[in-house]
Simulated assay, not measured.
Amino acid sequence: MKNILPVLLCVLFAAAPEIALAGGLDSGTQAADQFKTWFFGFLAIVAAIYLAWQGVMLFGHKIQWIDFGEAVGKVAVVGSVIGLATWAWSVFA
């Protein structure tokens, strides 16, 4: 009696395979693309806020220009990680 639920689900999915697929690979790919677009937009906003904050600190004489340049370099390096990972995958694959 304990194993009735898995058996019932297997019978249900065998009887209606479109329920088991739930949209298939295309809907999963679309969801992943939408998430990637949203996430990159979110990271761009975070990077802009970080650089704006560094700019406010710069004009408030809390940091030097070299510190602002370092912040710009950090954002550039972190932003290039996706391209670097793609390049490394092509080299080592």
Rank of each mutant, 00 (worst) to 15 (best):
L43Y: 02
I82T: 07
F68P: 00
K74M: 09
A22T: 04
D67H: 14
I63V: 11
W53R: 14
L25M: 07
F42R: 13
T86R: 15
F13Q: 03
A20S: 12
A88P: 01
K62Q: 10
N3D: 13
A14L: 12
L25R: 07
Q54T: 11
C10K: 03
L21D: 14
L5M: 10
G41Q: 14
I63G: 00
L21E: 13
G24C: 05
W65Q: 10
L84P: 00
P17N: 11
S27G: 03
G60C: 05
A88Y: 14
K2A: 14
I19L: 12
S27H: 09
K62W: 09
A31V: 06
V78R: 12
I4C: 15
K36V: 02
A16G: 01
Q34K: 12
A20I: 04
A14R: 03
M1Y: 12
K36R: 10
P6C: 07
N3S: 14
G23F: 06
A76T: 09
Q64V: 04
V75Y: 01
P17E: 04
G73P: 00
M57C: 08
I19P: 00
G83S: 02
I4Y: 15
W38V: 06
S80V: 02
L8E: 09
L84I: 08
T29V: 13
P17V: 06
T86E: 10
E70D: 05
L12F: 09
V91G: 10
I4F: 15
E70H: 14
A15M: 10
L58Y: 15
V46W: 11
Q34V: 11
E18Y: 12
A44F: 08
E18K: 10
T86P: 01
A22I: 03
V56W: 10
Q30C: 03
A15R: 05
K74W: 03
I66E: 13
L58R: 11
G41I: 08
G24R: 04
A44N: 14
Q34N: 12
A88V: 05
K74S: 08
